[in-house]
Design a protein around this nucleic acid. Sequence first.
DNA 1: AGTGAAACGACCGTAGA
DNA 2: TCTACGGTCGTTTCACT
Lengths: 157, 157
Amino acid sequence: MSRKPGRPTTHLDDVSKAIIEQLQQDGRRSYAAIGKVVGLSEAAVRQRVQRLTESGVIQVVAVTDPLQLGFARQAMVGIKATGPLEPLADTLAEMPEVDYVVITAGSYDLLVEAVCESDEHLLELLSTRIRTIPGVVATETFMYLELRKQTYSWGVR
Amino acid sequence: MSRKPGRPTTHLDDVSKAIIEQLQQDGRRSYAAIGKVVGLSEAAVRQRVQRLTESGVIQVVAVTDPLQLGFARQAMVGIKATGPLEPLADTLAEMPEVDYVVITAGSYDLLVEAVCESDEHLLELLSTRIRTIPGVVATETFMYLELRKQTYSWGVR
DNA sequence: AGTGAAACGACCGTAGA
DNA sequence: TCTACGGTCGTTTCACT
């Protein structure tokens, strides 16, 4: 779940980028179908996808739409804290409503995205589970009014 | 790219949740293999996945790791603005470095996540392309020090 | 919504350039 | 790192429940 620093940078050629674009449109597209588009044999596509996956450059996964599942209240919570940040980040990461935790430089030490069913649910999370963590000094909540863009593939194109 | 309000809430039974969990671990896992785990025939799994996908509850896609691709500087940018927020959000969404745009209630009107190659790249984006948009009054940047958790499936488990 | 069966197509390992 | 190929397994369709 946590991303380690110091990973080597992988260079992608145009063919790999094209393959990733195909998988970005449909993660279950067959290797043969991708091969036809990018001009490679099925086996070659398969090997490249395997290498890209094993090296951690890509991941083919299911993503869900919170709204469709009845999670109507999303918010970004900025947190100011004292003491070491990593254990705090890990505590937050363990909460099922929390889907995003990042340690930041700026007026917050941590940014946390939470997905909740209702205002009451969000309030409960914030008041009784986040703000009570030792080391949490202050929080500021940004309620989501509308999510306008969400992309899962960066650096391709 | 934008998510409209007022979508109906889909109810998931335990079997569909189990299927989504499987696809969350590996989006290319075969329907037959998933069927063995969840106790359903291959055809039944395929139908459920098709329904879940067509109704927008899930999406099987490739996600990329920015760090591996040489995008070492990520930041969340809080934006205060005047005037209507939707066109502003759309302008920001069109920028290739911007992978996340949300309209919020709170001390920022918008939150934007940007993925950049370097500090210079981020500075250029911020100074010459974001802060020059008419209606942008102020920005605050939270540089990412470490991304600790990133989940793509909400509401399942 | 689900199963089962048969035809078809995809996937995987291996060999060779 | 690619193509070629054969065996195996997954997918698709359809009739049935």
